[in-house]
Amino acid sequence: MKIYYDQKVDAAYLQMSEETPSGVVEISEGVNLDLTEEGKIAGIEILNASEKFPLQSLFTYEYKPELVAAAS
């Protein structure tokens, strides 16, 4: 996953895969999912990001192996 933030437009983008999105679905005001042909999430766009959550949380990564194992 790659995370991008554009300060000029206050938009964050979480790139979930290298696949090319074929469509966009707005799941709430200012939050959009980029979807592939198969319906997989390729990315998440968050507009007015600084109003929705602390930006520092974008750059904090926490890995919990027990959660990954439980999801398998």
Results as ranks from 00 to 15, higher is better:
E51L: 10
L47A: 03
V25S: 12
V9I: 11
A71V: 08
L33K: 02
K52T: 06
A71G: 06
E26Y: 02
D10W: 06
E18C: 00
Y4M: 11
S57D: 11
Y13W: 14
E45C: 00
N32F: 14
E18A: 11
F53L: 06
Q7K: 11
P54E: 07
S72R: 15
I27P: 05
K64G: 03
I3S: 01
K52Y: 02
G30T: 01
K40A: 09
M16I: 14
L58W: 03
T20P: 00
A49M: 07
I27L: 01
E66M: 09
K52D: 02
G30N: 01
L47N: 00
T36C: 03
A42V: 04
Q15G: 07
E37A: 05
A49C: 10
P65L: 07
M16K: 10
L35W: 06
G30A: 05
S50W: 13
A71N: 07
Y4E: 12
T60G: 10
L58C: 01
A12P: 01
L58N: 01
N48A: 08
V25W: 08
S22A: 09
K8W: 10
E62L: 06
L35S: 04
S17H: 04
S57C: 13
E38D: 15
N48G: 11
V25G: 01
D6T: 09
D6Q: 10
E37G: 07
E62W: 08
K8Y: 15
